[in-house]
């Protein structure tokens, strides 16, 4: 059997490709980019949510939010760890992010303007993430699939805490309800944009599907998300800002309006409301921490050198 045939056999048998296996170079490159961008998304995502830790309205909400953001950092770590099995270094991947050549999920380029945004992000963004992540647990690459299983287990609390915070707001004062509606008005369309372009406009979809990196199309995932979320909004008594949204009995799904693709591409190209801030923040933290990392490395080297001397004596 040639290496290509063995690789194809593994993928079609729904088995996992492991790091030491032969794999097509494009498969490796696609996975490196996708896993890295997934990791970057977790890390950048800490910023919009971290923005409300200091101002969380109660100690309970503060604790929940801190725990959620810590989970996200941990998820970033699991994912970088999976990417590194493909023969790249985390620092290389981070450099690509700092240079703007690696992206992260477009949703995090929007600002968190009120406490209700935090609940809304938990409800919509984590809801969308779960939709995608369950699919990714079936990805053909072992380390990525395993990281996703771990992440999925931890993720369900994220969506619930967000939705619960919104239930509180929507059953609270008129100001609180208005805060929630305003948040939904601003986050709905960016949430739909998270699922990416129509598959007909996406160059990678077919190859990714053949390699079982991607298991469900962008449009199908987006439809799944809408169908799941519309009743949830109705329960909250909130109005989704889409005049074309309506149940289609024949299809058995919700019809919804067309995304503003100009906005989508602007954000992907780095010109969304918070793109620059997010990357600058990340770069600044990294640069300011350089002396710390160097100190830790220097100290470890001193200790190793001392141990060698003792061993030799």
């Amino acid at each position: 059997m040639s290496p290509e045939e063995r690789f194809d056999a593994i993928v079609s048998a729904e088995e996992k490709v492991e790091p030491a296996d032969w794999m097509p170079e494009e498969y490796r490159k696609t996975l490196i980019r996708q896993i890295a961008q997934h990791a970057h998304s977790e890390v950048i995502g800490m910023q919009p949510e971290g923005n409300w830790i200091a101002r969380a309205p109660t100690l309970h909400r503060k604790a929940i939010l801190m725990a959620k953001v810590q989970d996200e950092a941990g998820h970033g770590l699991y994912l970088y760890s999976a990417a590194e099995t493909l023969g790249v270094n985390r620092d290389e991947l981070q450099e690509l992010l700092h240079q703007g050549r690696h992206k992260y999920s477009s949703i995090f380029n929007y600002p968190t303007l009120s406490w209700a945004d935090i609940g809304t992000i938990g409800w919509l963004v984590d809801g969308a993430a779960i939709t995608n992540q369950v699919m990714l647990t079936r990805c053909s690459f072992g380390p990525y699939a395993r990281a996703m299983v771990r992440i999925c287990k931890e993720e369900s609390f994220h969506q619930r805490q967000g939705y619960e915070a919104l239930i509180r707001l929507c059953s609270g004062s008129p100001d609180q309800k208005a805060m929630a509606q305003d948040a939904l008005d601003r986050w709905w369309w960016p949430s739909l944009m998270m699922f990416g372009p129509h598959d007909t406009d996406s160059t990678h979809t077919e190859q990714s599907m053949n390699w079982k990196i991607k298991r469900v199309s962008n449009d199908d995932l987006r439809q799944q998300f809408v169908d799941m979320t519309v009743p949830q909004a109705a329960y909250l008594g909130l109005t989704i800002p889409d005049p074309d949204l309506q149940w289609n009995e024949e299809r058995g799904h919700y019809d919804f309006g067309e995304i503003d693709w100009d906005e989508f591409w602007a954000v992907v190209k780095g010109n969304g409301p918070m793109n620059r801030d997010r990357v600058e923040h990340k770069v600044r933290a990294w640069k300011e921490g350089a002396w710390v990392r160097e100190a830790a490395t220097a100290h470890a080297a001193k200790k190793t050198a001392a141990a060698v001397v003792v061993g030799a004596a």
Partner: peptide, 15 residues
């Protein structure tokens, strides 16, 4: 939610 954020024409994702 997708992490395969599209590559913008003209950009390279290689180091």
């Amino acid at each position: 939610m997708t992490y395969e954020v599209p590559v913008v024409p003209g950009e390279s994702a290689d180091i």
